Amino acid sequence: MVIYGVSLLSICTLVGVFVGDLLGKMLGVKANVGGVGIAMLMLVLLVDYLKKKNKLGVQSQQGLSFWGAMYIPIVVAMAAQQNVAAAVKGGPAALLAGATATIVCFALVPIVSKIGKPIKEHVLYDVEEA
């Protein structure tokens, strides 16, 4: 089950890295800009498309689910480590920007968690006295 879907994952990763490198060169940055994010978006969109067209078998879906669950935390940890190293080298402005973004994200968690939840209606009942 695990091996199914790996080719789709690897294709998306290779294309994402290539596009990220190309985007980095276009922006004048000597780094991959968003390649992993592009790969993950491609993978999500491609899997959704293939599921709608019934072109993706159950074993491939299970394999992609497994690798998606393994892939995302690893890549996020790697990217976070690189970002922290770059921020420390970048000086206080980069550290301040990172800290501010983190604080804002933490502050928005309660607001975002309420999205999609039904609003509780407060109903007052009139009680007739007998």
Rank of each mutant, 00 (worst) to 15 (best):
M1Q: 05
I3N: 11
Y4L: 07
Y4N: 10
G5D: 03
S7I: 15
L8G: 15
L9R: 03
S10I: 09
I11R: 10
C12G: 02
C12L: 01
L14I: 07
V17L: 03
G20T: 03
D21K: 13
L23T: 15
G24D: 06
G24E: 08
G24C: 03
K25T: 06
K25L: 00
L27R: 15
G28D: 07
K30D: 15
A31T: 10
A31D: 15
N32L: 06
N32Y: 03
V33M: 09
G34M: 09
G35P: 00
G35Q: 02
V36I: 12
I38D: 02
L41S: 14
M42G: 15
M42R: 03
L43G: 01
L45M: 10
L46S: 14
L46Y: 08
V47Y: 00
D48C: 02
D48N: 11
Y49H: 13
L50Q: 14
K55T: 08
L56W: 04
G57W: 01
V58T: 12
S65W: 03
F66H: 08
G68R: 03
G68C: 08
A69L: 13
M70V: 13
Y71H: 10
I72S: 13
P73C: 10
I74C: 06
V75E: 02
V75F: 07
A77K: 11
A79V: 15
A79T: 15
Q81I: 08
V84I: 15
A85N: 05
A86I: 06
K89H: 05
P92E: 12
A94Y: 07
A94H: 10
L95E: 02
L95S: 04
L96F: 11
A97D: 03
T102V: 06
C105Q: 11
C105T: 14
C105V: 08
F106H: 02
L108I: 05
V109L: 10
I111S: 06
I111G: 00
V112C: 04
S113V: 04
K114R: 14
I115D: 03
G116R: 08
I119S: 07
K120I: 09
V123T: 04
D126S: 11
E129F: 10
E129C: 02
E129G: 01
